[in-house]
Design a protein around this nucleic acid. Sequence first.
DNA 1: CACAATTATATTGTACACAATTTAATTTTG
DNA 2: CAAAATTAAATTGTGTACAATATAATTGTG
Lengths: 144, 144
Amino acid sequence: MSEELKLKNQVCFPVYNLAKEIISLYRPILKDLDLTYSQYIVMLVLWENEEQNVSEIGSLLNLDSGTLTPLLKRLELKGFIERKRKATDERVVSITLTEEGRNKKEKAECIPTQLVEALDISIEDLSELKRITEKITNQINKIK
Amino acid sequence: MSEELKLKNQVCFPVYNLAKEIISLYRPILKDLDLTYSQYIVMLVLWENEEQNVSEIGSLLNLDSGTLTPLLKRLELKGFIERKRKATDERVVSITLTEEGRNKKEKAECIPTQLVEALDISIEDLSELKRITEKITNQINKIK
DNA sequence: CACAATTATATTGTACACAATTTAATTTTG
DNA sequence: CAAAATTAAATTGTGTACAATATAATTGTG
């Protein structure tokens, strides 16, 4: 059999697999905060900038409205965010944090440390992982 | 704001994001073969070994029956595989390739090359990506 | 050998992820 | 300024992904 089609020689599979593995490490930690991983990265974006459009969140996280609309509705239902159409442009839905959503940030502060501990990986390996994945993502986005 | 919670400092996000980006490069290529990415990696496993149980496929790909059962039923519906309970142990579902599924392999031979071309990344970067992601996955699996 | 425990898969329910289409609002242009 | 084009979200449909539970078959044990 041709070597290239063997699972062990695939390039994407290890990345796809690692993403799932890391997310599964996040899962129990995030459960205490009542957040899924996808909800968590949306909250990260909002903690950094408390008011953003759906499309702004989408372009930061590479998620479209088909993913974000229901996800944001779930965050709204839990009382972490508010969704309001802009008066100046009714097409735009502006997302803001509620008091509860803002307060969650303090509880979240320890997550990056907890995760690095759960990973049990050297800082060197982590930064190399970050460097190479970002490099390749940038290169992909350049040609698109 | 604490640096650690900023999106740009996250470790998992670039991995999660890159996995999605690579899969989106696969999508148009795999569409010609009438396969999704998940279906493709299942076919990879079967091309390597034409008869395997659901659980064997699952442990190679880290997917459980909740994911695999419907996915395999879709592959069966397309006529690429067959699902048959083992006579020796009726609990076990054995998956085999059909003639059509086997023939797909030839059409798939060019995919790894096509993808590397679409990525437009040096072999060095790709092997570094593979090395570091596999290293970290192994480390995660060691502590689990 | 019967019954409990285990095993393999299937099912159910929730939550992404994304393509394609729809809807409604705003901008552009003739 | 009205019709066409564009834009932003929402909706619909398909396909993962996984936890939890169910079902059915097999194995282990008294």
